[in-house]
Design a protein around this nucleic acid. Structure first.
Length: 480
DNA sequence: ATGTGC
């Protein structure tokens, strides 16, 4: 396949390279990241470029790796009028996302209590495959969670009024319709509120690394200072979103025949956005997205309680404000400029993050003159970043950036590379106290199984899409 | 990612 170099950080596969491509594909990467990019990504991103109604380019971010149909790290925007919606472009874990909670505490106050803190968090935030939460819901209440997301949590004592505005979509995407959700999805999801899940999902206690505050103005706006303790939460909609995706992939299989859509790969199953099937999925997807916002909210409540119990002060006194919560597996209706015209588009982000620049109405008022906070998780050994969106992202990538490190090897291969117990020991020697449900699950998340987060972050910064605000280093990790 | 797969 011919790959054209557009700039130091942008590569393009012309639409002439594959039959059926409607737009070119663009990949953000340095030379090194491009050389190491899985060939499956190039195949998938050019398949996406063939989908009806796609606008401008099919994108892949530098953390890209192959996923179900679409690459993880993908961004694709479709015309609202004659484009499609595709579960493969959103991911099975609908509204998998990141939340960052700040504190006024410093490393020296927390380090002496870190083992107790990790132990307590492990106890009060259920993790692992099939884990159940502490919140008991009736079917009617669970449907309220689907419709209201974080609003339900705040009304029921799981959050502060101010939390709402510090969450993408205020923690509640309008238009969620629980009548579009199967019984099976309800039965899987009803007991999972406030749970982490497994895989690379985690709760991490981190430090704002000294000398690694890159953007002083943004750090000030986000309430970040050197040696500060913050808490990062990475999880999504658990079995609930997974079931929604499974249900609608089946429905879309037949819908595609009905609407005469052909795709290069069955995993690209989609339906016209304006069809009844497409709209039903969009409404169901919003239910799962709101459940995921609520999931991270209940976990936040427990994080505040846990810190309070160990440190003997109330969460308000410790300044435990949410900095931001942002999805990296979701489709949204957004207005973007295409060929000089403002258009409403169905923007699919799968393993990519919204990163709106200053001024956009979607950016909370408290951050509007700075830009939207972007939370990206590295591997548990290497650290994470808080970034900020830019003006350039709005014109180049539909206001989107990377989401994390991106795997470089399979889970099976990672497990062969290190034993869980050995990794745990190595991490403790490096000052990271880790408590995991599964030791083999821990090994799958070893740092060597991921791309370098700093390389990926630097790529997006040099491309002008998102800017580094601060690097965050882990001192405690809870995972499934 | 996921009550881990044909």
């Amino acid at each position: 396949m011919e790959i054209k170099r557009i700039s130091d950080y942008i590569w393009e596969i012309p639409a002439s390279e594959k039959e059926g491509m409607l737009v070119p594909a663009r990949i953000y990467a340095t030379d090194k990241l491009m050389r190491e990019m899985d060939a499956g990504v190039l195949d998938q991103v050019t398949n996406v470029a063939c989908l009806p109604g796609i606008q401008k380019y099919a994108y892949c971010m530098p953390d890209g790796h192959p996923g179900y149909g679409f690459p993880i790290g993908g961004v694709a925007a479709f015309s609202k009028e004659d484009g499609v919606i595709s579960p493969g472009g959103i991911g099975f874990d609908i509204n998998c996302g990141m939340r960052l909670i700040r504190t006024d505490l410093t490393v020296s106050e927390v380090t002496p209590r870190i083992r107790e803190l990790v132990d307590l968090m492990f106890e009060i935030v259920p993790a692992g495959v099939g884990s159940k939460g502490f919140v008991k819901l009736s079917v009617e209440e669970f449907k309220r969670v689907m419709e209201c997301g974080v609003d339900w949590c705040i009304e029921n004592g799981y959050g502060w009024e101010e939390d709402r505005e510090r969450i993408e979509e205020n923690g509640c995407i309008q238009g969620a319709d629980p009548s579009k959700i199967s019984e099976k999805a309800i039965s899987r999801g009803i007991s999972q509120l406030g749970t982490l899940g497994s895989g690379n999902h985690y709760l991490e206690i981190q430090i704002a690394t000294p000398d690694k505050i890159f953007d002083k103005a943004a750090a000030r706006a986000f309430g970040i200072f050197e040696n500060q303790v913050v808490v990062m939460v990475h999880c999504g909609s658990r079995g609930f979103g997974h079931q929604v995706a499974t249900d609608y992939l089946r429905i879309f299989d037949t819908a595609m025949r009905k609407y005469g859509i052909t795709v290069r790969d069955r995993e690209l199953a989609c339906a016209p956005f304006n069809s009844p099937e497409g709209q039903d999925y969009f409404k169901a997807m919003k239910c799962a997205a709101n459940a995921a916002f609520a999931n991270r909210q209940v976990i936040t409540h427990r994080v505040r309680q846990g810190f309070s119990r160990i440190l003997g002060r109330n969460p308000e006194e410790m300044g435990m404000h949410i900095i931001y919560d942002v999805a990296h597996n979701v489709a949204k209706l957004e207005t973007h400029e295409v060929d000089g015209v403002e258009k409403e588009l169905v923007v699919h982000r799968k393993g990519s993050t919204r990163c709106f620049g200053p001024g956009r109405k979607e950016v909370p008022e408290i951050y509007r003159n700075i830009g939207q906070p972007v939370i990206v998780g590295g591997s548990m050994e290497t650290g994470s970043y808080l970034l900020v969106g830019t003006e350039k992202a709005m014109t180049e990538t539909f206001g989107s950036t990377m989401h994390g490190s991106g795997r470089t090897m399979s889970r099976t291969k990672a497990k062969k590379g290190v034993m869980g117990a050995e990794l745990k020991k190595r991490m403790e020697e490096a000052g990271i106290i880790v408590k995991a449900v599964s030791m083999s699950g821990l090994a799958e998340e070893a740092g060597f199984a991921y791309k370098s987060i700093s390389e990926v972050v630097d790529t997006m910064e040099m491309a002008g899409i998102s800017r580094k605000v601060v690097e965050l280093k882990p001192i405690g990790n809870i995972k499934g």
